[in-house]
Lab assay of single mutants.
Amino acid sequence: MFYPNSPQTSPQLTQIPYGQQYAMMQRQIQQPYHPFATTEPQARLYPYHYQGPIQQEQGGFITQQSTAASPQYVQMRVTPVDQSIMSGYPNQTANGSSSSSFNYNIHPQQQQQQQQQQQQLRHHAMPVGSVPLQDDRYRKQLIVNYLAPDVTSTDLHELFSRFGELDGARIIYDKQTNMSKGYGFVYFCHAEDAKEAVERMSGYEFHGKWLKVGYSTNPLNIVPSNSSPYVHAGSRGAAG
């Protein structure tokens, strides 16, 4: 039997160049792979992502010199942007860049009308829970959420009447099932009393439920100042 490094198959040491006398086997001759043993700084910083320098080929596509990437890492192929796409944008300079302001050559009167329309939209648009300043009635009506099913309009009136005089209180019921929808409205005579009720009743436990109280901004629920107070009856038909 002959071994790869046996004296019968191995040459004389004098015939082997210096430095390879003890590297006779194939696994010894093959050098191990060192990912950080390279002179390129990109490979030292990113050993798993770097795959060699990027070269520009004919046709405008950018390719990489090395083989496919590892399945664990996804390499994105980048193509140059066609400058003709950006030619339609206004205020574009000769080098292809555009300024931040756009001039669509709008007539001054049209621009003024658009600004007025935007101001009107901001004036009428009102986020949930906010209180408008032009109508004091919005500051007097509250919406009470997360009410228990057994709470009546009379219970709601008695709960909030300790903060001040009320114009009314009612629970909203479903017309088909005649069941409470879980929320109601309270109408105060003074805005200061309503503000105190919002601050003190939010998070209050009532009939096993934690109440959420806020201003009601729905104009359909506003009680006119010259109208008669609501009837605080315990029956659902009268309260709904």
Rank of each mutant, 00 (worst) to 15 (best):
T39K: 05
Q110T: 03
M76C: 12
D174L: 00
P224Y: 05
H232I: 11
S10T: 02
Q92S: 13
E158C: 15
T14D: 04
A233I: 01
S10V: 11
T177G: 03
A69F: 10
Q113L: 11
S101E: 11
Q92P: 11
F160I: 04
Q55C: 05
H107S: 01
N178Q: 02
D82G: 06
P47T: 13
D136V: 06
K195M: 13
G208I: 06
R44E: 00
I222W: 13
H49N: 14
T14V: 06
G184C: 09
S100D: 01
H124L: 09
R200K: 03
F163H: 14
V78E: 09
D135Y: 05
Q120T: 10
R170I: 14
D135F: 09
I106G: 10
A197R: 11
Q30W: 14
G234M: 11
S216R: 01
T14N: 01
E165Q: 08
V74Y: 00
Y215P: 00
S99E: 10
Y3M: 02
H232Y: 09
Q119Y: 08
D193W: 07
Y204P: 04
P149E: 03
T38N: 12
K209V: 05
Q114T: 03
T14W: 00
D135V: 07
D167E: 04
Q20A: 12
S87A: 03
S153V: 03
A94H: 13
Y50I: 03
P71A: 11
S101D: 13
F206L: 04
T63C: 05
P224A: 11
S98P: 02
L220Q: 03
F102W: 12
N178P: 03
R77V: 15
S99K: 01
P7T: 08
R77P: 05
N105M: 00
R137F: 02
H232L: 07
F185V: 02
H49P: 05
R27D: 02
V81E: 01
V78H: 07
Q64Y: 13
A191S: 03
F206S: 04
V151L: 04
L142V: 04
Q64A: 11
A238T: 14
P219G: 07
G208V: 03
E192Q: 15
I29K: 14
T9W: 15
G96Y: 15
G203S: 04
G214M: 02
P7I: 09
F185Q: 14
Q117V: 12
W210T: 08
A23M: 01
Q30I: 14
H190I: 15
Y73R: 03
H124M: 10
Q28F: 10
S6H: 04
G203Q: 08
Q15N: 06
S101W: 14
S180K: 05
G60Y: 15
I222C: 06
G88P: 07
F102K: 13
S97T: 09
T93A: 06
A169S: 04
S161P: 04
F61K: 10
P127Q: 14
Q15R: 04
L220P: 03
P7S: 12
V186F: 04
Q21K: 00
P219I: 01
I16R: 02
G96H: 08
A233S: 02
P80K: 00
Y146W: 00
P132N: 12
Q42N: 13
N178C: 10
L13P: 03
P17D: 10
H107W: 00
Q116M: 10
A94C: 01
A197I: 12
M25W: 10
L142Y: 06
Q141C: 04
L166M: 06
G96K: 00
Y230A: 09
F163V: 05
K209L: 01
Q30E: 15
A148K: 14
S130Y: 09
N226P: 12
S228G: 05
Q20K: 06
K209H: 07
A169Y: 11
P219V: 00
L211I: 06
P47A: 11
R122M: 15
P71N: 12
S228F: 12
T9L: 12
R122L: 13
A69M: 04
G184F: 01
